[in-house]
Each structure stands twice: as structure tokens, then as C-alpha cells.
């Protein structure tokens, strides 16, 4: 008993490794959670509203009511994630005390702190955070994030921002991999990233944690695209339960994520799905309304 170690990097990052190649789905109640689980989701994100509804409702978006989270936790046997506001230490501690399996320190909610993110290494529960570039990715890992995801632009059903973010991160890793060691400190300064982590990424040629796609995945083809661009798995927010046929969409996105290079199958999967969620063109969202601009 005494030689058991909980909350180590290996245990926290390992949890995210087990989610690879899978789909994590946003749900707002137990019934949706069961649909997601039956469709083959590897985890669910328990929320009060999906991002597109948060966007519409306006006002301050906070951690979900613990009652909803508890209902979802009781309804399924797969891992349950929940969102805390950026910098909201108390929301995070509440979620940890409830035993949620992963906390998303998320720009989808209204930030509680515009300067500081949560010091995630202090927690036993692992965290996932959004990133738009390598600097942001390494700052979050430096604070203790055990998993990353692209920020994309949540609730839009528009994949363009998630594509921008995954290409940016992977492009910067490629550049870093070809640098000589005497260039690393300057590169770290330019990125605003911890030097030790920059060095580690150069040595390994990859991030030390998994990086999922998020923020705009609306169709099986979107999920396949993000996997082709090097995402380790996919978060789908509004895309499933804002579509005409959530169960079919959920199943199709799960299979598309596994078989992202099997284009004949992707064609099959994309038939008879009905309408996906309505999308929003990014230029129609003012820069101040873009969720990806929250956090740094």
C-alpha cells in the first residue's frame, strides 16, 4: 500500500496516452453520456452547455453544476472530464474532490484570471489545456498539463482554426528538430517557453504529452483531417449533439478517427448522416469574441 505513488507524471500523462486514437465527446446529461459511451467514445466531457450554446447564451460561463457532473459519472464507466475556468483554482479543486478523471482548464469558459493559469503540477488529477502554438503548449506543460489539445475556435463547427493550430505546433517542432543546440535558448526566448522543455522536444522530436484536436470538429471528414495532420485523437464539442442524428454522427466520427486514411470507408461513413451542426465563418466573429484569445 505504502509504495503506491499517485499523481506522478507517468500516471497522469499515461491516462491521456490511453485515450489516443479515440474520440472525447461533450455531453450535458446522463442520457447523452450513455449515447456517447455506446457509440465508442473513449471519454465524455460533462458540461452544462455545449460551446455553441455558450456562444449564443453569452454572459459568464462557469464550471458545470456538480450535480450534472455527478449524474454523468454515475451513468457511464468510461472516464469523465469536466471544465474549470482558466485560473480558477477552486473550481479545479472542487472537480478534483469529486473524482473527475481529467480537468480541462478551458477557454470555452469565461476566464477567472487573465494573467495566471492554474499550477497544474500541484494536483493529483491530470489536466488538459488548449494551445495555438508550441510556446503556449510548452508553457502549459511547464505548469503541469498532462495532455494538450488545439484551441481551434469552439462552438463554430469550423475546422479552420484547429487546422491552423495543429500545423503551427507541428511545424515549429519540425523547425526545432533541425536546429543546433546553440540555437535553443534564443528559440525558447522567442517562443516564451521553458528552455528545459524546448530541449526535451528537440531530443525526442515530439511533445512529451499527447495533443488532441479540438475546437471546430463537425464531421467524420474533419476528424480524419485532424488525424492526418498529426493529432493524437479528437474532442468533439457541439458537433455531435447539435447534429440531426447524434448517435450516427458519434459512431461515424469514432470510426473515422480510427480509419482516417481509408477514404472509401470515410465516404460510406459520411452518407445518410443528415445535417451536421450549422457552422460559423470565423471572420464573422470579432476578435474579442474569439474564445481562442483567452489565456496565453
Amino acid at each position: 500500500m505504502s509504495n503506491r505513488k499517485v499523481g506522478s507524471d507517468r500516471v497522469k500523462r499515461g491516462m491521456a496516452e490511453m485515450q489516443k486514437g479515440g474520440v472525447i465527446m461533450d455531453v450535458v446529461n446522463a442520457e447523452q453520456a450513455k449515447i456517447a459511451e455506446a457509440a465508442g467514445a473513449v471519454a465524455v466531457m460533462a458540461l452544462e452547455r455545449v460551446p455553441s450554446d455558450i456562444r449564443q447564451a453569452g454572459g459568464v460561463a462557469r464550471m458545470a453544476n456538480p450535480k450534472i457532473i455527478e449524474e454523468v459519472m454515475n451513468a457511464v464507466s468510461i472516464p469523465v472530464m469536466a471544465k474549470a475556468r482558466i485560473g480558477h483554482i477552486s473550481e479545479a479543486r472542487i472537480l478534483e474532490s469529486m473524482g473527475v478523471d481529467y480537468i480541462d482548464e478551458s477557454e470555452v469558459l469565461t476566464p477567472a484570471d487573465e494573467e495566471f493559469h492554474i499550477l497544474k503540477s500541484d494536483y493529483v488529477v491530470p489536466f488538459v489545456c488548449g494551445c495555438r502554438d508550441l510556446g503556449e503548449a510548452l508553457r502549459r506543460i511547464g505548469e503541469g498539463a498532462s495532455m494538450l489539445r488545439t484551441k481551434g475556435e469552439p462552438g463554430t463547427g469550423n475546422i479552420v482554426e484547429a487546422v491552423r493550430h495543429i500545423r503551427k505546433v507541428n511545424g515549429q517542432i519540425a523547425v526545432l528538430s533541425s536546429m543546433s543546440n546553440d540555437e535553443l535558448m534564443t528559440f525558447a526566448r522567442d517562443l516564451g517557453a521553458p528552455y528545459e522543455l524546448v530541449k526535451e522536444v528537440k531530443e525526442k522530436g515530439k511533445l512529451p504529452v499527447v495533443n488532441f484536436a479540438a475546437g471546430g470538429v463537425a464531421t467524420p471528414a474533419d476528424a480524419a483531417l485532424m488525424m492526418s495532420l498529426g493529432a493524437d485523437g479528437v474532442f468533439v464539442g457541439s458537433g455531435i449533439f447539435k447534429s440531426d442524428t447524434p448517435e450516427k454522427f458519434a459512431r461515424a466520427i469514432v470510426r473515422a478517427t480510427t480509419n482516417y486514411e481509408d477514404y472509401e470507408l470515410l465516404a460510406e461513413l459520411s452518407k445518410d448522416l443528415g445535417e451536421p451542426m450549422k457552422g460559423i465563418e470565423i471572420s464573422h466573429i470579432g476578435e474579442k469574441e474569439r474564445m481562442q484569445e483567452r489565456g496565453w
Binding site: N3, R4, K5, V6, R10, M15, S77, P79, D101
Partner: peptide, 15 residues
């Protein structure tokens, strides 16, 4: 017994 040791916060490593 699935998840027999509990949820993620109870995940652990040991020799």
C-alpha cells in the same frame, strides 16, 4: 472488475 482500483485520482505506479 473494471476500474477495480477506482477512478483516475487513484491511479498509481509501484514496483
Amino acid at each position: 472488475e473494471r476500474n477495480g482500483f477506482g477512478r483516475q485520482v487513484a491511479s498509481f505506479e509501484m514496483p
